[in-house]
Write a protein that binds this DNA or RNA. Sequence first.
DNA 1: CTGAAAGCGCTTACAG
DNA 2: CTGAAAGCGCTTACAG
Lengths: 339, 339
Amino acid sequence: MAISLKDVAQRAGVSVKTVSNVVNGYRHVTPQTRQRVQRVIDELGYRPNLTARHLRKGRTGMIALALPELGNPYFAELADAVIEYAGGLDYIVLLDHTGGRRDQEVLFAQGFRARVIDGLILSPIELENEDLLARDSDAPLVLLGERQYDAPYDHIAIDNVAAARTAAAHLVELGRRRIAFLGARHGRARQTAHLRLQGWREVMTETGRPTGEEIVAVTDGYTREDGAQAMARLLDSGVRPDAVFCYNDLIAIGAMRTLSVRGLRVPEDVAVVGFDDIEDGRYCATTLTTVAPHKRAIARAATDALLERLAAGTDKVIEPRRVQPGFALITRESTVGRP
Amino acid sequence: MAISLKDVAQRAGVSVKTVSNVVNGYRHVTPQTRQRVQRVIDELGYRPNLTARHLRKGRTGMIALALPELGNPYFAELADAVIEYAGGLDYIVLLDHTGGRRDQEVLFAQGFRARVIDGLILSPIELENEDLLARDSDAPLVLLGERQYDAPYDHIAIDNVAAARTAAAHLVELGRRRIAFLGARHGRARQTAHLRLQGWREVMTETGRPTGEEIVAVTDGYTREDGAQAMARLLDSGVRPDAVFCYNDLIAIGAMRTLSVRGLRVPEDVAVVGFDDIEDGRYCATTLTTVAPHKRAIARAATDALLERLAAGTDKVIEPRRVQPGFALITRESTVGRP
DNA sequence: CTGAAAGCGCTTACAG
DNA sequence: CTGAAAGCGCTTACAG
């Protein structure tokens, strides 16, 4: 039914090897042969069957990227970065979302889609250490994000404590005294927020600022609405911070809305810092100061780690490594005001 | 290297056919044989090589779903629906996003990934009719969404005019007089907004209400911020609507924020209706009345259309069809207030 | 520079 | 109920 290499070879009067050479752009083919073959290819509308190629090569050139939620701009932007970088290396990225649910994360880690993808980059939320240890799949796996594990896998994550310190220090330098933290978490997600909370607490303590519970707002999730509500609760409780450091940009954006509704000016009355550097923060009414994890660097590190393992094969043992891509504090109106 | 059917067969002392039968759960295998083979499979940790299966079967069981942006909750939820429905039919869905850019849409339509996927569901924004006519790929393609084409492809879209009429009629029934429209578009995206604008205009005209330009707010995009700004511009221009019908929920949510900031009550002063029924609308401070396209029905129709073509093969000609899944008006606090 | 042939790991008529 | 064999469409040593 579909046109195969053989059909082209027959029609062009050459061997399949030669056609294959032309298709794959190998050198050593005389220009005339190449031209003749190419003409037949165009005539017949031949397209290589990738599945056959995959089978023959023992790899598919596809990797999966499993993220908690694509609806969160941070993950969407990160996905973009991975797709772009891996695409440049001729890898196709299959996007998956786990919903941050353990059963889904286990499913992906276990190699759902095994043998269709060559490897997997996973950003876990609820996954447990035992899940990783019980993993029974030889497809390379690279871990992304704040969760820490005692399992032999490459792990890519920025230094969250240092990043949070940078944000907190910025607010201190601006002379802010009561610097609240928005977006602490309960449950398992707590671990994720913990590092940022820790960085904040260190700087607060070192500079003699309060770190009491009344100045730390817990949220259920990471959405704008969570941020708006947390900010409202904080204000309603009588605490009157002159700055807030938020777990992420979405929470920060929600917080700014509440501040605006309550008639508090940003940054005059309350300075706001977020985390993630999502696009929304660059375009909102008061642009958002934020910690920008270098998403491209994260994408590159994760992809490189995965591809290196793929290149090495299953036999060769590569020591698992931790990579900490960089980050930067991007100051915008929400802390330094309009120029 | 990897364990193959043959390895299992050898070890179990049966033919590969028998192992294949066990793996695929075919009946006619004696329980003892099945058990013995299964034991060897477990021992050796055999997993079928999907690529080989794909090659042999001439299909991969994978379809692609290319959407403008995954960051928009509507598309994210639609993607979920397709993944779930197609998954139930043993198809894996590869998610792609086009960014609503023509070059990307053409790339996907042309069969980028051809032969890895069996077919494609595409929701175009900028794609032109000529692009479709020039399409040179035998992989089935199903179109999704409001853009209309004169090309022989299945097209799934709800009746946007009727849906908009329903929303407008609801506001009329509530006795609202000055019902603004938020989210008209310039450029090519205009076509998408046009149908909803038309439904609104019809009802306004039929019921003797204004439809002038001053009551129609154009936006650049579909985000909350676009909605917030459009609402602000409308109010600043001196227009004082008592209701707004928004192109989508994101714009509606943004509009509600502006109304709140300006001290206008929803729905007492201004009733708000959105479109899409995204989750955010169910959980925001004032829950949002919205037109809910039946996303599951859309997902089902698109997937069914695609799979039917896949089942029929390339030879058989199936008349392209238009399917209009249903929708429902969901009334919430933003129009009928709190009970 | 080009060809003939093996083989990637499956599934599937065809026999028995 | 099970087996032997062909073949899906490629790529790749191995020759020449």
